[in-house]
Design a binder for these strands. Structure first.
Length: 793
DNA sequence: CAGTGAGCGAGCTTCCGCTTGACTT
C-alpha cells in the first residue's frame, strides 16, 4: 500500500494527478461533499447556537468506507479539495469523518491541473482553515433555514409542493419583473430615414441623424428633398481596434452555446461534462478566466506556428466579478494541439467553440478602419451619415467572434465605395420607415444565468439545476410564442415622387424564452410583500460580505446566523398566522349575456375563469373554464375570458352520437364516441363545420386501420405498428425502433425479441434525442468566413 | 394524456453547493 493518500473532489482529476505523482501516491476522489445536513427539520439545533447535525449522504457511504480504509493504511493523507469555501469544508468534513489526526494530515491547494502546480502544492502544505469552513457552515445553515421555513408558508398560503430559497425565488422574480415591464411597455414609433445612392456603379446607404416622430414630419422632410443635391461634405477616417473576449467560464460558455447553437444550459453542461471526462477540456464548472502559464505558453506556440507571430498576444485575464472564488482555471482545451476531438456531433461542436474562444483570447487585437461620411442636402440643414468599416488586420477574428444577446436591427457595417469630399451623389431613393421601440427582451435560460452571475447569486455548479428547479416547480415555462401582426408605414421618395405603403410585420415572437406562470407571479408577489429582505436582489451580496468577515475571523458564524434568524423567524410565524390564502382572484366585469360577474383565479388544477358567485344553491352554480396556455390571470381580458366558455361546443350529430370540439393540453380536438381526434392548425375550433368534423373522424379511422401491420400469436402485447416515421415495434407501452433496411414481412417473433434485446431501451427516447439535435439551428459557429469580410459592432 | 373547480381532514412536499452515475420519471 502506498504511503500517501491524496483526496481530490473529481475522479477525472484524480486520474490525471495520479500520473504526475509517483508510485508513493494513491489518488482518490471523494465526489464532492461527503456529508450534508440531515434531511428533516431537526438538522439545525436553533436553540443550541444553531448546532448543525451532519450525516454522510446515502450515496457516499461506500466511498467514505473506502477512504476510511485507505487513510488508515496511509502515513500521510493529503486533502486536495478545491481552494474555495466549499472545498475547505469538504476537507474539514473528510478530516472529521475519517478521524484524521493533525500530524497525519496535510491540506494542499492548486488552481490548475498541471504537473508543476501539483508538485508546488505538495511542497507547500498547510492546515485546514477553520474560519473558511465556518463561512461555509454559515452559508449552508442560512440556506437551509430560509428554504425550509419559507417553503411551508407557501404550502399553507398558496399550494402544496412549492418551494422558496435564496437563489430560486430571486431568479423567478427577475422573470416576473421582466414580464410586467413588457406588459406595461409603451410602444412608440418614429420614422427612420435612409437614403440609397449610386456612387460610380456601387451603392451606399446613409441615414439621417434624427428620426421623425410623426408621418407628417417625415413627409414634409421628403418633400423638401425633392430635387435636392446630395454632396459629400466631410470624410473622417478613424482607426479602431477590437479585443478578443476572455476564455470561457461556466456562465459565458452557457451564453455562447445558447446564442450560437441554441442549447439550453443543462444540455451544454452535460456535453461539457463528457468532454471533461474524456480529458479534452479543463473543468467546466468555474468562475475564473485565468489560464495556466503552461496553457498560455502552448497557445502562443500554436498560434505562432500556424498563423505567424504577429497573431500572438499572450494575455492574462482577471475576473471582474466580486463573487468569483477562482478555484479552477477558465474552461479551455487541455491541449491546444487538439484542433478537433472525437465524439458526438454535439461534443465536437461545443469543443470547437471552447477551442476557438480560448485560442482567440491569446491572439492579437483586430485592427479596423472606420470611415464616417457626412452627406449634406441642398436647401436643408440636415445631414445624412454613412459609416463603413474596413478590416485592416483580422487578428483573433481569424478564429472567433463573440455574439451578442440583443438582436438589434442589423447594423452590419459595410465597406463604403471610394468617396471624395465635394462629390455629388446620385440619389436612388429615400425611405422613411416607421420603426417601433422595443421593451427589454425576455430572458433565455442563458441570459438569466448571466443576470444571476452579475448579481452574485448562485454558483457555476448550480446555475443549470436552479433553472431546472424553477421550471419543475411550475413558476416558469420555457416556450416559443408566435408573434402578433403590426402595421407600419413606409414613405419612399423615388424619381421625385413620393409613395406611401402600409406594410405588416410580426413582432414580439419569441423562441425558447422564459415566461412566468400564474403561480410564479403569485409566489413572487407573496414573498416580496412579506419577505422583502430575501427577495431583494442585493440580499446574497450582503450575506456574502458577512461570510467573508467570518472567513477572515472577524465574525462568529453563529452570531451572524442569530442576527439574521431572529427577525426572519418572527416574520415567518407572523405571516403564517395572519396572511390570507393567495389565489390571485380578480374580477373582470359583468358577463353581457347573464349579467353575472366574471372572475379569474388560480385553483388546485391551475388558473380558471368563473361566471357567477359561489353559492350553495344548485341552480345558481357558477360555470367554470380553464385558462389556456399562455394566458395569465393578471392580463386576461373580459372578452378573452368569456371566449373560454364557447368551448366545448357541440359541432353536430354523427352516427347517433354528438361531436364536440374543445381545446385540451395538446391543442384543439374533436371528441366523438369517446375517441379523440386532433384538429389541425388550419382549422378553427370555433368555426369547424359538421362536414369537416366528419371528414377528420373518417380520416382518423383510416389511419388507425392502417396502423396495425402485424400481430403475434405468442404475445398479444406485441405488435408491429405504422407510425409517423414508418413501422415500429410496440410492446405494451414501450416502443422500439426498426432499422430502415428491415423488411417487415420477414419479422418473426424470435427476430423481434432479438431487436428489443439489442435495443435495450425504448425507441421513442432515442428518436426524440435525434430530432432535437437536428432541430438546432445551423447557425455559423465558424467566425472564420464571416469575420474576414466584416466586423460586427 | 385531454372533461374537473370539493374541503370529515393521511402524510408528504422544501433549501444551496460539491460531485457523478443510474435511470427511464
Amino acid at each position: 500500500m502506498s504511503k500517501n493518500l491524496v483526496i481530490v473532489e473529481s475522479p477525472a482529476k484524480a486520474k490525471t494527478i495520479e500520473k504526475f505523482l509517483g508510485n508513493d501516491y494513491t489518488v482518490k476522489s471523494c465526489f464532492g461533499h461527503i456529508r450534508d445536513l440531515a434531511k428533516g427539520d431537526e438538522a439545525i439545533d436553533v436553540k443550541n447556537n444553531f448546532l448543525p447535525h451532519y450525516e454522510v449522504s446515502e450515496d457516499k457511504k461506500a466511498i467514505v468506507a473506502e477512504l476510511k480504509k485507505l487513510s488508515k493504511e496511509a502515513e500521510v493523507v493529503w486533502l486536495a479539495s478545491d481552494e474555495d469555501r466549499e472545498g475547505e469544508a469538504i476537507s474539514w468534513h473528510l478530516s472529521e469523518v475519517l478521524n484524521l489526526t493533525e500530524s497525519k494530515t496535510r491540506r494542499i491547494v492548486f488552481h490548475e491541473i498541471t504537473k508543476p502546480a501539483i508538485l508546488k502544492a505538495i511542497e507547500n502544505p498547510r492546515g485546514i482553515d477553520k474560519n473558511l469552513v465556518d463561512a461555509q457552515q454559515a452559508r449552508r445553515v442560512l440556506d437551509r433555514l430560509v428554504g425550509f421555513e419559507l417553503s411551508p408558508v407557501l404550502w399553507k398560503k398558496v399550494k402544496a409542493n412549492l418551494s422558496a430559497g435564496r437563489v430560486q425565488s430571486v431568479a423567478v422574480r427577475l422573470i416576473v419583473d421582466r414580464e410586467r415591464e413588457i406588459n406595461v411597455f409603451n410602444y412608440s414609433s418614429a420614422f427612420r430615414v435612409i437614403a440609397r445612392f449610386n456612387v460610380s456603379g456601387k451603392q451606399m446607404e446613409a441615414e439621417l441623424a434624427k428620426r421623425f416622430e410623426t408621418e407628417a414630419e417625415a413627409l414634409a422632410f421628403l418633400e423638401k428633398c425633392k430635387g435636392a443635391t446630395f454632396t459629400i461634405k466631410n470624410l473622417e477616417v478613424k482607426p479602431s481596434e477590437k479585443s478578443p473576449a476572455p476564455p470561457f467560464t461556466t456562465s459565458t460558455l452557457q451564453q455562447e452555446a445558447s446564442r450560437k447553437m441554441g442549447y439550453g444550459v443543462s444540455i451544454t453542461m452535460s456535453i461539457a461534462q463528457k468532454l471533461y471526462e474524456n480529458g479534452f477540456i479543463t473543468y467546466m464548472r468555474t468562475d475564473s478566466v485565468n489560464l495556466s502559464e503552461l496553457a498560455i505558453g502552448s497557445a502562443q506556440k500554436y498560434i505562432t506556428d500556424n498563423f505567424g507571430s504577429k497573431y500572438s498576444r499572450p494575455m492574462r485575464y482577471t475576473t471582474k466579478n466580486d463573487s468569483a472564488q477562482e478555484a479552477h482555471e477558465a474552461i479551455r482545451p487541455t491541449y491546444f494541439e487538439n484542433v478537433e476531438v472525437e465524439g458526438t456531433p454535439q461534443e465536437k461542436k461545443l469543443y470547437d467553440l471552447i477551442y476557438k474562444r480560448a485560442i482567440a483570447s491569446q491572439m492579437a487585437k483586430a485592427q479596423i478602419e472606420k470611415t464616417i461620411a457626412t452627406v449634406s442636402i441642398s436647401g436643408l440643414p440636415d445631414q445624412l451619415i454613412a459609416t463603413g468599416e474596413v478590416l485592416k488586420f483580422d487578428g483573433f477574428l481569424k478564429v472567433y467572434l463573440e455574439s451578442t444577446d440583443d438582436d438589434s436591427e442589423d447594423e452590419n457595417s459595410k465597406m463604403l465605395p471610394p468617396l471624395n469630399v465635394g462629390e455629388n451623389l446620385q440619389l436612388i431613393h429615400i425611405n422613411a420607415t416607421e420603426r417601433y421601440s422595443r421593451p427589454a427582451p425576455r430572458y433565455t435560460e442563458a441570459s438569466l444565468v448571466k443576470k444571476l452571475e452579475e448579481l452574485g447569486i448562485g454558483r457555476p455548479s448550480t446555475y443549470a439545476p436552479t433553472i431546472s428547479t424553477i421550471q419543475k416547480r411550475g413558476y416558469v415555462v420555457k416556450e416559443d410564442r408566435e408573434g402578433k401582426d403590426r402595421k407600419f408605414v413606409t414613405l419612399t421618395l423615388e424619381k421625385n415622387e413620393i409613395g406611401r405603403e402600409v406594410k405588416t410585420e410580426k413582432f414580439a415572437s419569441e423562441k425558447s424564452k422564459l415566461f412566468p406562470s400564474d403561480i410564479g407571479m403569485i409566489v413572487t408577489d407573496f414573498l416580496t410583500k412579506h419577505f422583502d429582505k430575501i427577495m431583494d436582489f442585493g440580499f446574497t451580496a450582503s450575506v456574502e460580505e458577512e461570510f467573508d468577515k467570518i472567513a477572515r475571523g472577524q465574525l462568529g458564524w453563529n452570531k451572524m446566523i442569530e442576527k439574521f434568524y431572529g427577525p426572519f423567524h418572527a416574520n415567518v410565524i407572523n405571516t403564517s398566522e395572519t396572511a390570507e390564502r393567495q389565489n390571485a382572484e380578480r374580477s373582470l366585469g359583468a358577463d353581457p349575456e347573464s349579467g353575472k360577474t366574471v372572475y379569474v383565479k388560480v385553483g388546485r388544477y391551475g388558473p380558471f375563469a368563473q361566471i357567477g358567485e359561489n353559492s350553495d344553491d344548485e341552480k345558481e352554480k357558477p360555470r367554470y373554464a380553464s385558462l389556456r396556455a399562455g394566458q395569465l390571470t393578471e392580463t386576461i381580458t373580459l372578452e378573452e375570458a368569456i371566449d373560454l366558455f364557447r368551448l366545448p361546443r357541440v359541432v353536430g350529430n354523427f352516427e347517433t352520437k354528438d361531436i364536440k370540439a374543445a381545446i385540451g393540453r395538446f391543442g384543439p380536438y374533436l371528441v366523438h364516441d369517446s375517441k379523440f381526434i386532433s384538429i389541425p392548425k388550419t382549422d378553427d375550433v370555433f368555426a369547424i363545420t359538421i362536414e369537416r368534423a366528419i371528414e377528420l373522424i373518417e380520416g382518423k379511422r383510416i389511419s388507425d386501420a392502417n396502423k396495425l401491420i402485424k400481430t403475434f400469436a405468442e404475445d398479444e402485447e406485441l405488435k408491429i405498428l405504422n407510425g409517423r416515421w414508418g413501422p415500429y415495434i410496440a410492446l405494451g407501452k414501450e416502443n422500439y425502433r426498426l432499422s430502415k433496411t428491415q423488411k417487415v414481412d420477414e419479422l418473426t417473433y424470435e427476430k423481434v425479441l432479438e431487436i428489443i434485446k439489442a435495443e435495450g431501451r425504448p425507441a421513442a427516447k432515442t428518436a426524440a434525442k435525434k430530432t432535437s439535435a437536428k432541430k438546432v439551428p445551423a447557425k455559423k459557429t465558424a467566425a472564420k468566413k464571416t469575420a474576414a469580410k466584416k466586423v460586427k459592432k
